[in-house]
């Protein structure tokens, strides 16, 4: 069984193509969950510029995907995160999780997006139509969302 696939790229991605790639020739997958994060046009946003830490980013995503692989009986997992300049409407991040049954696929998908928001070295800068620019601040609710997946002591 192939392990998690993790990619960091400037190019866009196609949800249907990635789903087809993950499920091609497979007969053991009963549920495929997907999450796509999109660039939203808040407050006159013209673009999001995503910076990352090359090397550490790939390591962190691989570690997070491996954590999900160990916690749930996954049979497929794809994580793609874009970097560079993205305009509203463009996809930023893709998480695909496959399992024999839906619960593991859905839970692992939610876990992955919650964890990568708080545990992978990406930073967003917002650019506005009037030329203003600001770094997005980390949100306490993202920490709370990630914390709900903490293993009981």
């Amino acid at each position: 069984m192939p392990g998690p696939v993790v990619r960091v790229q400037e190019a866009g991605f196609d949800l249907a193509a990635e789903a087809a790639r993950l499920t091609e020739g497979r007969t053991d997958i009963g549920g495929l969950a997907s999450f796509v994060g999109l660039c939203r046009a808040d407050d006159g946003l013209a673009a999001l510029v995503l910076e990352h830490y090359p090397g550490m980013t790939e390591r962190a995503l691989a570690r997070i995907a491996q954590e999900a692989w160990g916690r749930w009986p996954l049979t497929g997992c794809t994580v793609i995160h874009r970097v560079g300049r993205l305009v509203p409407g463009e996809p930023i991040v893709l998480v695909l999780t496959a399992s024999a049954h839906r619960a593991a696929a859905l839970d692992a998908c939610a876990f992955l997006i919650d964890w990568l928001k708080t545990s992978a070295p990406f930073w967003k800068r917002e650019e506005f139509a009037d030329g203003a620019s600001r770094w997005v601040a980390a949100k306490a609710e993202d920490d709370a969302a990630a914390a709900r997946w903490a293993k009981p002591a």
């Binding site: 994060g37 995503l50 990352h52 830490y53 550490m56 995160h81 930023i92 991040v93 997006i113 990568l116 928001k117 708080t118 545990s119 992978a120 070295p121 990406f122 930073w123 967003k124 770094w135 997005v136 601040a137 980390a138 949100k139 993202d142």
Partner: peptide, 10 residues
Amino acid sequence: IAFFPPVTGG
């Protein structure tokens, strides 16, 4: 050693 703000990916 790298220094950066809290991360904001996803």
